[in-house]
């Protein structure tokens, strides 16, 4: 099936002003500003099919929002090509906007001073939603997101959690084919996050709405997105199933052994010691197919093993390992 979103060698360069020190420097900056290019997005390609839910992940400043802004048509790429639903989103901004829904966690699409219901009404007119479609969607979304109790309240009086639910509901009022979410759970409490995640996952499943979600909260991705695109410093690091991430980044399972008494140095063939004190010893397992039983059988008989725990690495850990490694190599260089 043809992708509904594609990025081909997309690069976005911003010009950043370089400030020179001192009074003389600021005068020179004024007369002849010096800028240097910053690649917010650096040669990224991917394709997304209809109905997918994709997590777009990266640390702050990795170029996530810039990519979303290019896909939603509010920025043009410096080079390369983005296509959304067969169009260049920036050249066809208005037509593109009609078919997508967008939620920016840190900005509001709602009318701050007006009651929520009026924001919905304005949205209906701007997106030219037929009355019966609007009535049905409004009723459904109000029920699913629990908006009924504050529909008539001005948006500025809503809590962040209420507002975010309303933002997402509004973004879906016109039955968009694609829903873009930029940090939709930022600043929300655990309960609100849970509501939002369950809802998004349901919309993706039941309505077949394609979801692209940027976040740095990995749980968002674990619960909503089977596919993950990972970027860092503008570059693509990983694009594939969340399940394949471990293999790709070589994150290892951790084995923790608990002894009844201080065991001294413990050697475990096929595993690398990774700290531990007192009665505990921790190992990182080399993924060489050896079974746990085999590993433990090799322990000395008098080791007095009391308990064994095995930790599978979550994406969070995998990615943390990656970033730490990057910082370390950066320092070494």
């Amino acid at each position: 099936m043809a992708p509904i979103i594609s990025a081909e060698h997309v690069t976005k360069v911003f010009r950043q002003r370089v400030r020179r020190p001192g009074l003389l420097g600021s005068l020179r900056d004024l007369a002849a500003p010096v800028t240097r290019p910053v690649n917010a997005v650096d040669d990224i390609s991917f394709a997304i099919a209809a109905g997918e839910a994709v997590g777009y992940l990266g640390p702050n400043g990795a170029g996530k929002s810039t990519m979303i802004k290019m896909l939603t048509g509010i920025l043009a790429p410096s080079s390369g090509k983005v296509m959304v639903l067969g169009r260049h989103p920036q050249a066809n901004r208005v037509e593109n906007a009609r078919q997508i829904g967008v939620v920016f966690g840190q900005r509001t699409q709602l009318w701050w001073e007006l009651p929520l219901s009026e924001s919905f009404e304005l949205h209906r007119r701007m997106y030219r939603v037929p009355s019966e479609v609007f009535a049905r969607n409004r009723a459904d979304l109000t029920e699913m997101m629990g908006l009924a109790s504050f529909l008539e309240r001005p948006v500025r009086h809503l809590s962040l959690g209420q507002r975010m639910r309303a933002e997402i509901a509004m973004a879906l009022m016109h039955d968009p084919k694609i829903l873009f979410l930029d940090e939709p759970t930022i600043g929300l409490d655990v309960v609100a996050k849970d509501v939002v995640r369950k809802f998004l996952s349901r919309i993706n499943r039941e309505r077949g709405t394609t979801i692209i979600l940027t976040t740095h909260d990995l749980q968002d991705i674990e619960e909503i997105c089977p596919r993950l695109i990972m970027v860092d410093e503008g570059k693509l690091l990983f694009d594939g199933a969340v399940a394949d991430l471990r293999a790709r980044f070589g994150a290892r399972r951790r084995l923790v052994l608990e002894f009844s008494r201080e065991p001294g140095f413990v050697h475990l063939a096929g595993a690398e010691p990774d700290g531990g004190e007192g009665h505990l010893r921790s190992f990182l397992l080399n993924d060489d197919g050896r079974s746990l039983v085999e590993l433990l059988a090799a322990l000395q008989a008098d080791a007095d093993l009391r308990d064994v725990r095995l930790h599978e690495p979550g994406i969070e850990e995998i990615i943390r390992t990656h970033y730490q490694r990057r910082i370390e190599t950066g320092r070494a260089a």
Partner: peptide, 13 residues
């Protein structure tokens, strides 16, 4: 402030 982004997401000139 970048709030222009929100306006540009709407399907109106």
């Amino acid at each position: 402030t970048g709030a222009i982004g929100s306006s540009l997401l709407r399907p109106v000139g």
